[in-house]
């Protein structure tokens, strides 16, 4: 890819073509990268929802057909990382494939938590293909109501 000096005065046609070429190179390299990994084993990112209420931050990750042991959840300071590996279940009877839309292999997702949480009270459940991680807020991060006495 070439760098082209920005020159608003030059309205030369060839400069425009040069720019188009470098744009095409950019697309080509992105396509080559995507095509290099075998189908179904590309890097993938399961969909994630994050919610916050007065008591906790709740993170949901959508990954069907996993085993609970294959998840790895870690909390480092204020960064929560959920990673894991989904393995394809194939037996010796498995023959020709007609559709391969599912993703397999390793994934990892991290988020920076909006508030301080109590690391000792973090819980996780895996149900119907959705991993739910509940991170109760640390006492100092919870909203407090301050009673003001009038005397």
């Amino acid at each position: 890819m070439k760098l082209i000096r920005y020159n608003p005065v030059a309205k030369d046609l060839w400069t425009t073509f040069d720019r188009l070429n470098s744009l095409r190179d950019l697309f080509d390299s992105a396509l080559a990268l995507a095509a290099s990994a075998p189908l179904g084993y590309r890097e993938w990112f399961p969909a994630m929802d994050v919610r916050e209420d007065d008591h906790a931050v709740t993170v949901e990750l959508e990954v069907a057909g996993m085993k609970k042991e294959d998840f790895d959840i870690s909390l480092e300071r204020d960064v929560l990382t959920i990673s894991g590996e989904r393995k394809a279940e194939r037996s010796e009877n498995t023959g020709e494939s007609f559709r391969n839309e599912r993703f397999f292999g390793k994934f990892s997702r991290s988020i920076t938590l909006p508030t301080a949480v109590d690391a000792t009270k973090v819980t996780a459940t895996y149900n119907d293909g959705i991993l739910t991680v509940t991170l109760p807020k640390a006492e100092e991060a919870k909203p407090k109501k301050i009673e003001v006495g009038v005397s």
Partner: peptide, 9 residues
């Protein structure tokens, strides 16, 4: 939904 189809036996 994403689907995989393969022959099995």
């Amino acid at each position: 939904p994403a689907v995989d189809i393969h022959q099995d036996g």
